[in-house]
Design a protein around this nucleic acid. Structure first.
Lengths: 239, 239
DNA sequence: GAGTGGTCTAGACCACGCA
DNA sequence: GCGTGGTCTAGACCACTCT
């Protein structure tokens, strides 16, 4: 009566094994993994099989492969993490570099929609970060970020938080964000937006609701961004 | 003094060769390519090299590979093309199936922003389609679609147009849309939106500006959608 | 020159779809 | 049972990086 997959390619098992070891912190961000040959010998499979698993991990941006140098756990440097998940772009196609300001962090009980989005119990404790983001000194978005206290203990000790949060998650908590799921809608600026973005009440804003996934597939962050798109646009390629 | 790539893997050359033959219509949508063995013999490379090229094509969704059956030029059926590039989703995560109505098509001279977006001369002739899209009988978006007459001759003869345009491009013109680039911003409903969407003037709308690319990398469609996101959201996963 | 990932090959065997 | 794509292996050689 079991409906298990009943067949699992070797390389896919290698993939899972390596993901687990990375998630466990055996190799940290920026550090190199053993060579293909070494991993193959260690795992008792051929180099080609290890290669296929590593290629898949590289495709998922979990690792970086550099010919002649080695294989490294992907590092979310400030720049890279900013550009990878921050989609707001100037009309002239130049990537905009965001900075942060007017930031606050507090601990509170999770709210129902957040609990649903993060698949957490209604009793969970979270940190809530509220901040304004700037591009070219102009406020362009207000963000509310909710993080489980269980995943990010004592997060408030790191205040003021760096510009690129995902680099912090990785460096301080070993949490690697590898994908995000976003829901976009248009909304009108409210009092709060008016104050933080300096736009008139009723200005159309792009609201982005995001859930971020760590390398082991867990939902670890929920955030709501409300963006003034009069000068920047949300830019995306679909394939 | 030349800065040419000066090294080009075999499989990448095979990839290009196959793309060209598909773009030329040697194998049409839904038809099967020769087997890996046959292609390898034909091209004078090993099966593994052909496989690597085919895997890349499958990743780019240009072909479909089906174990036990063969390799097929990807077919943009109504359903598939609708779901692949139509990102509006119900809040309950169910994919919404759009229909079309209130459609018009006319031929005119291209306008400057469109010419820039499509990399066409200012003198080009285009077809402009305007239509309203519905989900659950409710109007949810108004679309303006601009297509070069040189790429889609006599397009108006196919009126009324089918719901999934990309399937039409493929079937009638051999144009395979493989990727799109979109710019999103929030805007307020204008008179025209009011009329077509039945929303009050000033309702916040999600405006999506899209350029679509065919399999040979050419820009073949520009479209502007203005969406009412009060019931549907634009849903996207980033990796 | 040594070590790494990247390419290319050849061959065996497996899972799947179909007749 | 045959033909297809999918997996796995083993080995040779190439391109890149660093010492």
């Amino acid at each position: 009566m079991d409906s298990a997959p009943q067949y699992r390619p070797l390389y896919s098992q290698v993939y899972e094994a390596l993901i687990k070891r990375i998630a466990n912190g055996e190799w940290k961000a920026g550090q190199s993994l053993p060579s293909e040959q070494a991993l193959a010998a260690q795992l008792g499979v051929s180099q080609g099989t290890v290669r296929k698993a590593l290629d898949a991990l590289a495709l998922d941006k979990v690792i970086d492969r550099r010919q002649g140098k080695g294989t490294f756990v992907a590092e979310l440097t400030q720049e890279r993490s900013l550009f990878r998940f921050f989609r707001l772009t100037r009309a002239d196609e130049q990537r905009a570099v965001p900075t942060s300001g007017d930031e606050s962090i507090r601990r509170r009980k999770i709210r129902s929609p957040e609990a649903r989005a993060l698949a957490l119990p209604e009793t969970a404790e979270v940190f809530e970060i509220v901040r304004t983001r700037f591009v070219d000194e102009q406020p362009i978005a207000v963000e509310r970020i909710v993080l489980p206290e269980s995943v990010f203990p004592r997060l408030d000790a790191h205040s003021p938080l760096p510009n690129a949060l995902y680099a912090l998650y990785q460096r301080e908590y070993g949490i690697n964000i590898v994908s995000t799921h976003e829901k976009l809608r248009a909304d009108l600026a409210r009092r709060d937006d008016e104050r933080r973005l300096g736009v008139p009440l009723g200005t159309p804003l792009l609201q982005v609701e995001r859930v971020a996934y760590s390398v082991d597939g867990k939902r670890v962050e929920w955030r709501l961004s409300r963006c003034d798109t009069s000068h920047l646009v949300y830019d995306i390629t679909l394939t």
